[in-house]
Design a protein around this nucleic acid. Sequence first.
DNA 1: ATGGTCGGCAACCGA
Length: 256
Amino acid sequence: MRFATFNVNSIRARQDIVLNWLKKETPDVLAVQETKVQDKDFPLSGFDGSGYNCVYKGQKSYNGVAVFSKQRPQQVSYGFREEPKDEARLIKAKIGKVWVVNTYVPQGRDVESEHFRYKLDWLGRLKKFFEENFDKNDPVVWLGDFNTARDERDVYDPEGLRGHVCFNEQLSKALEGVIGWGFFDLFRHFYEQGECYSFWDYRMRGALKANRGWRLDYIMVTKPLLDAAKDCYIDRTPRLLKKPSDHTPIVAEFDL
DNA sequence: ATGGTCGGCAACCGA
């Protein structure tokens, strides 16, 4: 079984890239973020005949998450139980025997802004969400765009970028708190070296070519799935196409 | 090469 995550930066602008990628890679599950579309305008018919089910929750212009799966998703829910629910940032579903949690963590804008405080609180609420909904021995895959570089290996310039809204001490603590509930960073489990990124900023000229990137997208798994994991890799090929997203997919493979 | 980041959405905001 294979699971993947991909921040598409608009599902409508990237529909063909996603379709072609699903056809070529054939994951069992693909979690996407930043669909940037309200539910009534989601391009569902574009995926007819792809062999994938799709559940999604979006809003006008910003955010939005979706899960594509070969098997029909069960017990689907959106957002947190309490306000603000943030439905366009979180989907939970059971696919086969595995619980899938797809998150688009708030970016935070600036460490001095109220949005950064919201990001930290959001991660605190997410930890509570896992505590309430699961046992750490349940098979849970938590994946998505976390808008967080865990450590210096996950950014192209750790000295220069320390303190950035996606790379700072407070944020690391908040994310490590969620991970500490019972998750393992699957890419990091298989590969210890740095300079393996999932995001290259559009605004930085030649960022991809010079590999000035960030690892912001993750596949986290609980212990039973860690034991079943075979590999986890970053697929840069969609980032090399015309009109690419600024992110690229992460894929995890399991003996399930 | 006559532009230099994108996407959404209709002026500028968010990433």
